[in-house]
Design a binder for these strands. Structure first.
Lengths: 212, 212
DNA sequence: GTCTATAGATTGATAGAC
DNA sequence: GTCTATCAATCTATAGAC
């Protein structure tokens, strides 16, 4: 139980943050659930905020790395072929790694719930952790999508990307929560099924006619 | 300062809940910001939870009432004409009242932020308040959209409605927050402009081709 | 309806022994 | 690295005077 403690704390913190929220999870809750001493959080992470940072960045950094690589692959392939990248390929490069990454985790629902809430929650410091790592990716997505849809005005493209990110994160929450929010018979177990529904929805939305 | 206190508490609570979150807003914060006595929250609302209920329901109930009336109007008009309702008309009936209602409030951003977060936040009791009032509306939306798009399989229609609600709520947050999340030059001031961008995006998404 | 005072529980963080 | 013990601050809620 040396630095095994640190990883156990990270795992239980992720679960509790997803289940009860960060603000409502006390250090006592966490250390008791993990089965370690109360002082271990401050020893390993310095403070509760230091713990929150590491819990979030442990997922956000490799996830956005995978998304970035997939995007660059799509861009490179299109450039080699001398063609525009396809809207749906770009959306897939952004979205699919999310659920592929989740599938590598023992309890993916906690990761999905926690990360999706980091973006929309009321805690500005938590939002900043999310945004700090998401902004460069979003710039890349914007530039790539502009190549796919060069006729779209800047403001329209920007807004539609925001809508897409919003729908993606609401999907992450839908899968994360055990019970579906609305519509009792929704099949949330198979996350790839949700991706295959989300992609044509967003792809059509991105390419919708627009009015100036 | 009789029952004027109650309304002042509701207004300041809405603002603080939007700015810092419900869990992070203490009764001391609230009564101090409002300029009233600490005990007044328990006198007027029984408990903090009672305050939260009233702060949320004060907005959610009339908003969903307006949405329901607009939906029923679209359905009735289509029925009289003997035609299917239009997808975009139904989406507009769901979305437009949100921002019309916001425009009647002195500080609409607090309402938009607070309500949109109630749905996606980690507090199950708060989510239940939102869902309790949203579920009947969602059933109506589903039935109406099934008339507009009868060829869509149940699971696809249900999922696309979830995507649309997710995009709507992320838009509410975008407008609510003073600084745009991503893309520094986004114009969030004019909320009707966002609605006019959201509608064709979602309308195209709802009518996208689908693969079984 | 408003106020003071306070109870009783819980919080994040740390000092110091082992 | 782990533990106990504890501090100082904060929390919700309430009792009781006015």
């Amino acid at each position: 139980m040396q630095d095994d403690t640190k990883e156990k704390l990270l795992n239980h913190a992720e679960r509790l943050f997803a289940e009860k929220g960060i603000a409502a999870t006390s250090i006592r809750d966490l250390t008791q659930a993990t089965g370690v001493n109360i002082a271990s959080v401050n020893y390993h992470f310095g403070s509760k905020r230091g713990l929150v940072d590491q819990v979030l960045e442990r997922r956000i950094i490799p996830l956005n790395q995978a998304r970035t690589e997939r995007l660059q692959l799509v861009l490179k392939t299109a450039a080699v072929a001398g063609e525009r990248p396809l809207t749906e390929d770009l959306l897939r490069a952004l979205i699919e790694p999310t659920f592929e990454f989740a599938a590598t985790l023992p309890e993916s629902r906690y990761f999905l719930e926690m990360v999706s809430r980091a973006m929309s929650g009321p805690d500005a410091q938590v939002r900043d952790i999310f945004l700090q790592h998401f902004k460069p990716l979003f710039q890349l997505v914007y530039a790539a999508m502009h190549k796919a849809l060069p006729e779209l005005p800047h403001a329209v493209l920007l807004m539609r990307l925001h809508f897409s990110v919003g729908a993606l994160h609401s999907s992450m929450q839908m899968i994360g929560e055990q019970e579906p929010l609305l519509g009792a018979q929704m099949e949330t177990g198979n996350s790839s099924a949700i991706v295959e529904m989300l992609l044509p929805f967003l792809s059509s939305g991105m390419q919708a006619p627009y009015t100036v």
